[in-house]
């Protein structure tokens, strides 16, 4: 292993640590709840996109149905809490485990499909999940389900007065997703995934177990996204099938990674840091009229970034061509 590579890896870790500390200090100075809300959403979408990036960016299996795992996490946590009084911390792990298992079960038939057939299969499966939940009376059907308010408590992860606990949780989530990616990047799995993405046939002939590495990526990715879904349910304390499991959400989850730099370590967080504040600000300043101007601005932004920076905004930061990969 050459020295510059190890050094770069160590530097990345250092940068991440500095950014985390800096981010952790921000809410001590910024008290505006609306701004704190934007920061929480940015961290959450960064974490989600980072997790999506493991399967779709590193391993190259484009999933447009990750809302399924987000929704599973959100619903598992909410249902366990409202129906059985199980603390959300446990619900979060349960949701992650269920999602990972479902990802493995679905991966078994789906990973034989190529390209667009795979992508459409992921959309279709998430839609089936959405329709089933919409018709499931016990789980609140299409109207959704509300978390009962039981007063501020760490055990129940409910805080009516302060957004800080949510902020730190979202920060921790983003750190975990980043660190898992960082760690996997230089592991056996990370190299397998990139080989599978670039050329599955060549990878197979060199002894990479293509199928197993796709399954591994799917399980890790689904687990982390489900934890994000659990967090979202606790944060907004009201979920409905359309907003947590809809097709639109699958695309929104992928967007930061694509715009920031798909298959890169920093791309998803960079994409989220730019996209989410812009989305939220356009929505709150010009979206209130309900006339769709916010959609026009947002859509134009996506088209422009996609066309101007196909390799992602991360390309702006790399000193030489391809250094970000």
């Amino acid at each position: 292993m050459d020295k510059s590579f190890t050094e770069r890896r160590r530097r990345e870790l250092l940068v991440a640590a500095c950014l985390t500390v800096a981010a952790a200090l921000v809410p001590l100075f910024v008290k505006n709840p609306n701004v704190q809300n934007i920061m929480i959403l940015t961290l959450m979408f960064g974490a989600l996109s980072q997790s999506w990036n493991i399967l779709s960016g590193y391993c190259g299996q484009i999933s447009l149905g990750h809302a399924l795992y987000f929704g599973l996490g959100a619903y598992t946590t909410t249902l366990l809490f409202t129906k059985f009084g199980v603390p959300p911390w446990f619900g979060m792990l349960a949701g992650g485990a269920i999602s990972a298992l479902i990802a493995l079960a679905l991966g078994y038939p789906c990973f034989r499909l190529g390209g667009h057939y795979f992508a459409i299969a992921t959309i279709v499966i998430a839609e089936i999940g959405l329709l089933l939940i919409q018709n499931w009376e016990w789980a609140g059907a299409a109207l959704g389900i509300e978390m009962p308010v039981r007063g501020d408590s760490w055990l129940k992860f409910q805080f009516a007065r302060s957004k800080l606990p949510y902020f730190y949780f979202a920060l921790a989530l983003a750190c975990v997703a980043w660190f898992v990616t960082w760690w996997l990047e230089d592991s056996k799995w990370g190299y397998w995934w990139r080989a599978v993405k670039d050329n599955p046939d060549a990878a197979q002939s060199l002894g990479v177990v293509v199928f197993d590495s796709k399954m591994g990526a799917a399980a890790v990715s689904a687990f982390l996204v489900a934890v994000g879904g659990s967090f979202y349910a606790m944060y907004v304390s009201y979920i409905d099938p359309g907003s947590v499991m809809g097709f639109q959400f699958s695309l929104l989850m992928a967007l930061p990674a694509v715009l920031g730099g798909i298959g890169t370590l920093w791309g998803p967080l960079l994409g989220a840091a730019i996209l989410i504040p812009l989305t939220e600000l356009t929505r709150s300043y010009i979206g209130g009229s309900g006339r769709g101007v916010d959609l026009i601005v947002y859509g134009t932004l996506i088209v422009v970034i996609a066309l101007a920076r196909p390799e992602g905004l991360i390309g702006l930061f790399s000193r030489r061509k391809g250094a970000s990969r």
Binding site: L251, G292, L295, Y298, G299, P310
Partner: peptide, 26 residues
């Protein structure tokens, strides 16, 4: 696009879809 042609065209047309929906609302 030299990189990620697949994703670039998905999201370029997805962005267009959002713009068209916004224009229709407006």
């Amino acid at each position: 696009a030299k990189a990620n042609v697949g994703m670039v065209q998905i999201f370029a047309t997805f962005g267009l879809a959002i713009v068209m929906r916004g224009l229709a609302q407006l």
